[in-house]
Design a protein around this nucleic acid. Structure first.
Lengths: 226, 226
DNA sequence: TGTACATCAGTGAACGCGCGTTCACTGATGTAC
DNA sequence: TGTACATCAGTGAACGCGCGTTCACTGATGTAC
């Protein structure tokens, strides 16, 4: 029995144009759904027929790829967070753009990434507490995993390295909440309003600075054993 | 021309059983919609016929009260935040339950209120980034107003009273974000799981304490003129 | 490389269903006298 | 308090529509030889 395509294989195939007709249509369905989300609709209110119409295939062909719309939604969740993880990974290897100020650099990377993947973020924001409960669960788990990644990165700071895990997690939760809030504000702001966006970014940076001020004052429960 | 019923008038009538048939049915539609939201559905995916069926009237009677489902949604938003404001007002006059610890008292009141108005909170959480853009706008505005109220209350603390308004707003935003996050976690947790909920509350309290630790370290832009 | 054939992906007609909305109606409610 | 009447709220039939899903089909793709 041949191993199923790994994500990397799939990406390779897509990038080199070697993907099969089936894979192309499947991708077409995903992109069609995302495109429709741009028109102020939530995924859960999209109909199967709408998506296939947008994708340029007949409704019945949908079933060759997914059994339900919910399955398609799961693919979109996976996709959205895959690109998010890629971003984190590239920051980890290449560092932040303006390495002088960590907070500004982080916010800047996040905002750029939101712009580059606007529809993915819109999808996640809408479905985080939206219609399909299975999508809500997946998204919550992915956001949690994102927080764990962040905690690992933060552990490189000497002071945080001495904190108990729960305290670190508390800090990452606050930071992730702030980032989620940034994303949601940017998505809700009128697109291409640079002034409004700069204001959101400025306020977000102030919030992150404020959070960082509490770090030295926090008394973790017990010092981590060396 | 007679003045339209104020909210207080309406409440008076409802409480004293003097409301007209029309008002009763209108209320019945609101309650029917809320009830349906308990079954893991979002308001935007509710159909007019579902709501009237649940309310025990014929679909066409809906139009005697609302032109669209969106209008009904606006009523629900107004209702949800009205009860929230009542809660704040009662805390303001009666004080917090365990007045020794402000943070614990605040979280406790919030959690109690969420339980007492679970469906309203569920509605707000689902529609905050959900289907109808007019509801999104209303909810955002109401949350903003809630933050302004909180800012007023916080201004009674001497140290915050000397902060510039923007700094106070930044703090309230962080606190409101945390409260919203608490609400969302409690709604997503399995109902009646006391242990899980206690854990959410404990973590929330720690987050609030952490936020408060940054307060003395924050340097506001300019001292407020006395 | 060329052919035969199996599998895979897209087609198009058809179905029954719940939807929002219209309309003319009926009966309940409230008011004027 | 009792009656006449206007207004208001709920009814029930009907409509056209888009929906998800079924089915037998056709043509494209990929594989074995």
């Amino acid at each position: 029995m041949p191993a199923p395509d790994s994500i990397t294989d799939k990406l390779d195939q897509i990038q080199s144009g070697r993907e099969s007709r089936g894979q192309r249509t499947r991708l077409g369905l995903q992109e069609a759904a995302l495109r429709l989300l741009g028109h102020d609709k939530s995924f859960s209110s999209l109909s199967l027929r709408e998506v296939t119409r947008e994708a340029g295939i007949v409704p019945t062909a949908f079933y060759r790829h997914y059994q339900t719309m919910e399955e398609l939604g799961q693919d979109l969740v996976a996709d959205s967070f895959r690109t998010l993880r890629q971003m984190i990974r590239s920051v980890r290897t290449d560092g932040l753009p303006s390495s002088g100020n960590m907070i500004q650099g982080t916010v800047q990377v996040l905002v750029q990434h939101i712009h580059a993947n606007r529809l993915h973020f819109q999808f996640i924001a809408r479905e985080r507490f939206g219609g399909y409960s299975s999508l809500r669960v997946s998204i919550r788990d992915e956001i949690h995993a994102f927080g764990q990644d962040l905690a690992t990165d933060l552990a490189r700071f000497p002071i945080l390295n001495r904190w108990d895990p729960e305290s670190v997690q508390m800090l990452t939760t606050l930071m992730v909440n702030t980032m989620v809030s940034i994303a949601e504000q940017i998505l809700e702001a009128p697109a291409n309003d640079a002034a409004a966006e700069a204001e959101i970014v400025r306020r977000a940076e102030r919030q992150m600075v404020f959070l960082s001020l509490a770090v030295p004052a926090w008394k973790p429960k017990a010092a981590k054993p060396a």
